[in-house]
Write a protein that binds this DNA or RNA. Structure first.
Lengths: 225, 225
DNA sequence: GTCTATACTACGATAGAC
DNA sequence: GTCTATCGTAGTATAGAC
């Protein structure tokens, strides 16, 4: 905590960061095709051309935005399933996964929408010539999370804790259940009667998703609650 | 079956229908903003301007496409939950809902993606001045389906068949689980190792979603399978 | 690092001939 | 009912001055 190092360290976000933050919000709201760089530049407070000083193309901005989001979420999934948690029972890991996903998606209101779009939009781009370094990085993070889901379900079935479900179907079911809620926008808010991201709504979501997952998968005689 | 009436009745789709079909496929693939009328016209085999002879604007095409999709889905939900089914137990209706949703979404590969986009995209349009007749019709169909979900969950809790879950959370969970799977595209196909819409994959999905819903909601001592 | 100016393409939509 | 031609705007991206 030396004065020299901490001075202004969290201050003065660079133009680069401002562009990424702005694009994260706009891409989450309107998707890749729905956002123009004119709007981005206006919101950031720069000229349109200045954006190209910081990024080579709109695609590159998109993938850098997406990568940040995916890495934020992966941290929570890794904490729930990997490392020290790897030795826990599948049931306990399932509980942690439910809570961890909710925490990850509730952290930023943009995360769920961006993730959902990335999961189901084939490629947001007219024609992408070849995978870029950024797009491959995004694919890798996504794949590692999905693999972790699958391994958890397989473990639970192997240990006899879970019903004998289809692993791919259970994976898409859990992903859809987790992500859609926080991406559901106006619809979700009209259902819950308020913000999806209020502390109360998030706490309830954490309980609900965890118990939904557990009841759906864990054999009744193995349930611990 | 008089020769006069059946002659060519299913043949010769009008330009109007061709435009709607084409737009359904393209909007499902790329979203509203991601599709240009130039591409639509090319695919239909018309000039761009001819589209405006059949529809007043791109927005109008979008809502007519969406309304067709919503009504196709609503039919299945209504069969599962309404009419003769209304007197069945909540558990049996929940089973029917799971199967009905799968059947509805598996019917056309475009349905899930269009529905998912409609559910979470705030408004796909830059600025919509005021609700149109078409947009209000879409809202009405959507609302009636969501209400039916909520009533089913409430009924199940009231009768003691279901756990005491949060109705809004359970609604978004079920919607996300049902819709995301069939919208998950390449990701889902790599998980199941083939088409999401093959007879085998759909049959499995029907079983999996039904049992996922039942186990997640129905109290173990009330389960019937 | 930001600006103005510009290039070129595509957008949604309209007018009017046929 | 379809066409060509055109309008005005906005799209991504580049060049070059400051």
């Amino acid at each position: 905590m030396s004065p020299l190092q901490t001075r202004e360290t969290p201050q003065a976000p660079s133009s680069r960061d401002k562009i990424l933050d702005t694009c994260e919000a706009l891409f989450a709201r309107s998707g890749y095709a729905g956002v123009g760089l004119r709007e981005v530049a206006e919101e950031v407070g720069l000229g349109k051309s200045s954006l190209f000083h910081h990024f080579a193309s709109k695609q590159q901005i998109y993938y850098e935005v997406l990568l940040r989001v995916l890495e934020r979420i992966e941290v929570n999934v890794a904490v729930a399933l990997g490392g020290d948690a790897a030795s826990l029972s599948a049931t306990e890991r399932l509980r942690r996964l439910g809570r961890g996903l909710v925490d990850a998606l509730a952290e930023h209101p943009t995360s769920a929408r961006l993730l959902l779009r990335a999961l189901f939009e084939v490629e947001p781009f007219p024609h992408m010539d070849e995978p870029t370094a950024e797009s491959r990085a995004c694919d890798a993070v996504l794949e590692s999370m999905i693999d972790a889901f699958g391994r958890l379900v397989l473990d639970g079935i192997a240990s006899g804790e879970f019903r004998e479900v289809s692993v791919p179907d259970t994976t898409t079911t859990m992903m859809g259940a987790a992500v859609f809620h926080f991406a559901s926008g106006e619809l979700g808010e009209s259902l819950v009667g308020g913000s999806l991201y209020s502390a109360r709504a998030v706490a309830r979501r954490r309980r609900e998703l965890e118990s939904f997952f557990v009841h759906a998968l864990v054999r009744p005689d193995r349930a611990t609650d």
